[in-house]
């Protein structure tokens, strides 16, 4: 069962994500900011890394975008989806060379998100 680490500073969004993803059969871990994400990944051995990271673009302490940049610099290749209020990388002020698998726009179209996740964790 693929494991997904979801990070968002809103408890409500985390609850929604957890519920939808668990209903779809994924194992879900949550974090409330990018710092927690990078800490947890650095703490675990590579074979313990989640199969996918679903990160909010804007979070206090460390944003999803900063977290991805840090992980990629540390050689972590886990696929990442960035959740953002914006429609694309340019609007989210994300660097275009940021190595992510895609951007998810709020409000989230879960049918589309679930099929994208299925593709990335296959």
């Amino acid at each position: 069962m693929p494991r997904i680490l979801v990070a968002d500073d809103s408890e409500t969004i985390l609850l929604l994500m957890r519920t939808r993803l668990e209903l779809a059969g994924y194992e879900v871990e949550t974090a409330s900011d990018g710092q927690e994400v990078t800490d947890r990944i650095h703490a675990g051995a590579p074979d313990q890394h989640p199969d996918l990271l679903l990160l909010d673009a804007m979070m206090p302490r460390k944003s999803g975008i900063e977290a991805v940049r840090e992980l990629r610099a540390a050689g972590v290749e886990t696929p990442v989806l960035i959740v953002s209020a914006h429609q694309n990388a340019a609007d989210a002020d994300a660097p275009t060379e940021l190595e992510v698998s895609g951007f998810v726009t709020k409000p989230i179209d879960f049918d589309r998100l679930l099929s994208e996740i299925a593709e990335l964790t296959r």
């Binding site: 929604l16 914006h86 409000p107 989230i108």
Partner: peptide, 21 residues
């Protein structure tokens, strides 16, 4: 405003969809 409104809207729509499931 249009960005800030998206997060609560995501929750409202998401939980309503959850009910419909």
């Amino acid at each position: 405003a249009s960005h800030e409104l998206r997060s609560p809207l995501t929750s409202v729509q998401g939980f309503a969809e959850l009910l419909m499931l």
